[in-house]
Each structure stands twice: as structure tokens, then as C-alpha cells.
Design a protein around this nucleic acid. Structure first.
Length: 506
RNA sequence: GGGCGCGUAGCUCAAUCCGGCAGAGCAGUGGCCUUUUAAGCCAUUGGUUGUGAGUUCGAGUCUCACCGCGCUCACCA
């Protein structure tokens, strides 16, 4: 049984009293003629027009956010999807009984429908002079923040607003109801994903949906979630990437495909990692990673423009300029500049370990060359890439699905995009040679056997698809949540997820 | 998983350093108030101080364990 607080019990008693009076506390239907913004605009238009003084009749609906009962009159603010508007109740207009009904039985957080005529108060605020009103839905639990102050310049200051990060995430409904900024964040998020779709649709990319439940996971080096199909008695994995399915579509002559959807990785949770996250991947036949690079900077700049109105944004106090072209940094050159080690001169793990030792650089021992280079990027380069930067040309060992640079079999045509010291996206010229791909799977299986629990499973069906012939192509993946973080100036991924993963309560 | 920090009324926070009656504002309740807007004024309700144990005459405060959250490191294509 639900245990109620005293504040809730008082409201439940009000509900009981209203029902005894025959007043419906959750009526089925509502009516409105204007949103708050439309009503205010209509009144201002009427004020300015030649037919000045013409009455603007309106029926408004919304949530009660403040109430000031002054005896024989009351003022209140309601909030709807378009903003706020003030209501004015006067005993002369509605009589004592109705005024008392409002003052006694309406609480902050309740939904109300009110009709009347728009006017301007002595202090100049456009307000609805209420002639009749009714309860639309009673709130039992008080909203966590009750009062806001609107300053002269129009900014709204929240007093005693809901700020507790945990509570805001667990009870996102309350956070959204009370914090305008939270609603704005998620509207921006929608604008960002819409802009990404628009950008790709305009360029003839086809949006597709591929399986989330997969018999074999792949396309990334990550631990999967496992699940089970009861009737088929089949072990299944939640996908860790879309890559292998999307590339099957290139075999099927779909030349440009993309998917925006959820990936699941059974790994650590942090300010930039959630167990499920939104990924954008696209594959582009007859393109290579350099073309993908250009498309990427245009696409992200487009999203920034659509979401924030500019390609320059402020992130955690520093200005980030997404305007193309972005910085380009070759991995070998970047590492050579930062730590004096030339990875091209160190073609195996032991020579690279030796070179690092020679420079007195402490580094993890006993790991293979590719992983060591990855470590060097983390150590020397990642945090320095604040402005959007493409780091390109990666070691083959950590890129089993990317194609080598002609004439340099140990290096692949791959880049990652970094912004604010955070990895945003990952792309490469895709490997389309089925013989080479099979070899890579075998190599990965061996490598991971040796020093990792992350097996890279062989996907026989994917190889069968590739054997039918796959056009040369460039592929791309981006963490959409991270892009949203950058464009909404949020330090934590939890702030851009409506319902981030949290431990179970109690 | 490691380190550091936080958890007090529905919400925001005091009291913790140096143990001594657990407080304020808002919200709520009762009253006054016909242009307010964080309305105001008078009165008033509301607490297992995250949970459990310990030290002590006495614990919100000190100690330990646990739970949750945050930051950070590790992990993470």
C-alpha cells in the first residue's frame, strides 16, 4: 500500500470532499481555445489594431504554478506547453462561492481549465479575467518546487527549485514539470536528432532499422548484455553496434544507409558512459574515410547550427568552434610531437616498449602494439584535442573492420573525432575483402584470447554476405548523447538522458 | 572495482569544525486583505537527521559497517 505524507493526505481529503459535492476531480475531457502564448499574442494584436478594445475571449488550460489569494480577489499563474499566463479571479465576476472554491480546493500542481477575457493588469501583465473555471486533474503529491520569481528583464528565477541530481534523474517527470531548463535540454536533443536525420535524408541516405537482439554480437570491442528467447531456447545478445548489419545492406545494393538507435554495452558507468546509449551509424558506398571526414564536419556543424543557432558553442566555459574544416592530426605525427616516439619506426610490441623505455615514459607492460598505441593516444593526445579534431591513421591491430592504407598494411584508414577532450565519433574506410576479413577475425580471436576477456566472435553470415561482393565504402559511428552533451553544455551524460541508468532504489 | 566527498521537514539549506533542547525560508493548515506576481501580515502543523551497530551521562555531530548519489582513477574502439 502506498504510504502518504501528511501533505498528500490533506489533498486526498480535498479529493474526497469534492467527490461528495459531486465535483469530478479527474474529468475525461478538456477544452482550450488558445495556448498561453497564443492568448497573450491575440490580446496584444487586438490592443494595437484599429478596432482597439475588442474583447479577446479565451479558454486556457494548464498547470497551476502559483496562487495569490488576496481575500476578494485571487491571482494565479498557470503553465502550459507554450509558457505561462496569469489568471485573475474576482468576486464581482464569479461570486463568493466560486472564489472560495478556488482558494480552498486548488493546490499548486493541479491542472485547471479557465475561460474569460484577456486584459492588462495595473502592473502591465497580460492576464485572463476568469469568468468560469474547472478542475482538470488534481495533484496528490506537491511538486518539489513551488514558486518562481519573474525578474524585470523577464528571466525566471527558481526559488527552492528541485536540484538534487539523483532525485531529478529518478523522478524525471517531476524535474521536467518543475525545471524549464530540463525541458529545453530535451527539446534541443530532439532538434539535434532531427537535424542529423534531415542532413542524411537530404543526401539520399536511407534510414533503416536492424536487429537489437542478435545471435552474434560484433562491430565493436565491448562486453554485451545477454538474454534468452524462451520458446526458441536461443541465447541472444543486445547489440553493441549496428555495423555488421548495416554493411550487409551495402551487399544488397543499398548504397547509402544509416540508423539512429540504441546500443548496449555491459561496462562501467561514468559521466560519459551509460549502459544503453544512442548511436548514429552510416555507411556510404564508393566513399573513403576522407570523404566521410568532410561529411562529418558538415553534419555536426549543421546540427550545432540547428540546435543552438550557431556553429560556435560554449562547453564548460570554453568556446568550441564546429565550423568546418576541423583540425586534422595524423596519429603518428601527433605522437611523435608529443612524446618523441615514432610508431612507424616501431613495427612490433617489443620495439615500441623499448622506444618508450628509452624516453623514460612509464607505460603498461605486456600489452600488444595496437593497445599500447591506444594508450599513448589517451595519455598524450586525447585531453589536448579541445577544438574539433580528426585524429587519423590508426594501427591495424585495434581496427579489425577497417581497410589498410595502400602500401602500409599495418596502418588503416581510420579516424576518430575528438571534441573537448572527448571521443565523439569513429569512422573508417571499411574492409570489404572477405578473405582479409576472415583473417582479421581469427587474429582478433587470438589477440583477445591472450590478454583480454573480450572475445571478438567470428560472424560467418557476415563473411558470407561479404563474399557476394561489397562495394568499397566509408562507414561512420557517433555517440549521439555525447553530441547532445556538447551542444547543451552538459558535463554528464545523465543530464541528456531522460531516464539514465541508476541503481535500483532500496 | 579503488580513492575522495555528500545524505538533516514535501523543496532549498543552517546546526557538524570543538558532542549539550534539531532550526529557517518556501510549501501546508487557520485567519485578515478587491490589481498581486518569491504578495504581505498574524497564528500554526510538520523530523526514525539514509540504514544498522559502537563510544559516551548525553550523538545530526565521534568510530565502524552497509545503502544511495556525486567527483575522480581504472575499465571502455
Amino acid at each position: 500500500m502506498t504510504e502518504y505524507t501528511k501533505l498528500e493526505e490533506i489533498r486526498l481529503e480535498k479529493i474526497e470532499t469534492l467527490r461528495e459535492k459531486g465535483i469530478e476531480t479527474y474529468p475525461t475531457r478538456a477544452k482550450r481555445t488558445h495556448t498561453s502564448a497564443e492568448a497573450i499574442e491575440a490580446f496584444e494584436m487586438a490592443e494595437e489594431s484599429a478596432s482597439q478594445g475588442e474583447e479577446v475571449l479565451a479558454t486556457l488550460t494548464g498547470r497551476l504554478r502559483s496562487a495569490r489569494n488576496l481575500g476578494k480577489i485571487s491571482f494565479a499563474h498557470i503553465e502550459d506547453g507554450a509558457g505561462r499566463v496569469q489568471l485573475f479571479f474576482r468576486v464581482n465576476d464569479i461570486g463568493k462561492e466560486k472564489l472560495d472554491f478556488f482558494a480552498k480546493f486548488f493546490d499548486l500542481g493541479d491542472f485547471i481549465q479557465a475561460e474569460g477575457t484577456m486584459f492588462r493588469t495595473r502592473t502591465g501583465e497580460v492576464t485572463l479575467r476568469v469568468s468560469d473555471f474547472k478542475l482538470l486533474a488534481k495533484a496528490v503529491t506537491p511538486l518539489p518546487a513551488a514558486k518562481d520569481e519573474t525578474l524585470e528583464d523577464g528571466t525566471v528565477v527558481h526559488h527552492a527549485a528541485l536540484e538534487d541530481v539523483q532525485l531529478r534523474a529518478r523522478q524525471r517527470y517531476a524535474d521536467l514539470a518543475v525545471n524549464l531548463k530540463t525541458r529545453e535540454t530535451f527539446k534541443k536533443r530532439a532538434a539535434i536528432t532531427r537535424s542529423l536525420r534531415d542532413f542524411l535524408d537530404e543526401r539520399d541516405f536511407l534510414e533503416v532499422e536492424t536487429p537489437i537482439l542478435q545471435p552474434i554480437y560484433g562491430g565493436a570491442a565491448a562486453q554485451p548484455f545477454t538474454t534468452h528467447h524462451n520458446q526458441l531456447k536461443q541465447e541472444l545478445y543486445l547489440r553493441i553496434s549496428f555495423e555488421l548489419y548495416l554493411k550487409r545492406l551495402l551487399v544488397g545494393n543499398l548504397e547509402r544507409v544509416y540508423e539512429i538507435g540504441r546500443d548496449f554495452r555491459n561496462e562501467g558507468v561514468s559521466y560519459k558512459h551509460n549502459p544503453e546509449f544512442t548511436q548514429l551509424e552510416f555507411y556510404w558506398a564508393y566513399a573513403d574515410y576522407l570523404q566521410v571526414m568532410e561529411l562529418t564536419e558538415q553534419m555536426v556543424a549543421y546540427a550545432a547550427e540547428k540546435a543552438t543557432g550557431s556553429t560556435k558553442v560554449t562547453y564548460q566555459g570554453q568556446e568550441i568552434d564546429f565550423t568546418p574544416p576541423w583540425n586534422r592530426l595524423e596519429m603518428r605525427q601527433g605522437l611523435l610531437d608529443e612524446c618523441g616516439v615514432d610508431i612507424n619506426e616501431c613495427r612490433d610490441a617489443s620495439s615500441l616498449h623499448a622506444a618508450l623505455n628509452e624516453k623514460n615514459i612509464e607505460h603498461p607492460a605486456d600489452i600488444q602494439r595496437g593497445k599500447l598505441i591506444d594508450w599513448m593516444v589517451d595519455e598524450f593526445l586525447e585531453a589536448k584535442m579541445i577544438q574539433p579534431t580528426f585524429l587519423y591513421n590508426y594501427p591495424r591491430e585495434i581496427s579489425p573492420l577497417a581497410k589498410s592504407i595502400p602500401g602500409d598494411p599495418q596502418t588503416v584508414e581510420r579516424f576518430e573525432g575528438f571534441v573537448a577532450g572527448m571521443e565523439l565519433c569513429n569512422a573508417f574506410t571499411e574492409l570489404n575483402d572477405p578473405i582479409d576479413q576472415e583473417q582479421r577475425f581469427l587474429e582478433m580471436g587470438r589477440d583477445y584470447d591472450e590478454d583480454d576477456e573480450e572475445q571478438h566472435p567470428m560472424d560467418e553470415d557476415y563473411l558470407r554476405a561479404m563474399r557476394y561482393g561489397m562495394p568499397p565504402n566509408g562507414g561512420f559511428g557517433m555517440g549521439v548523447d555525447r553530441l547532445v552533451m556538447l551542444l547543451t553544455d552538459k558535463h554528464s551524460i545523465r543530464e541528456v538522458l531522460l531516464f539514465p541508468h541508476l541503481r535500483a532504489e532500496e
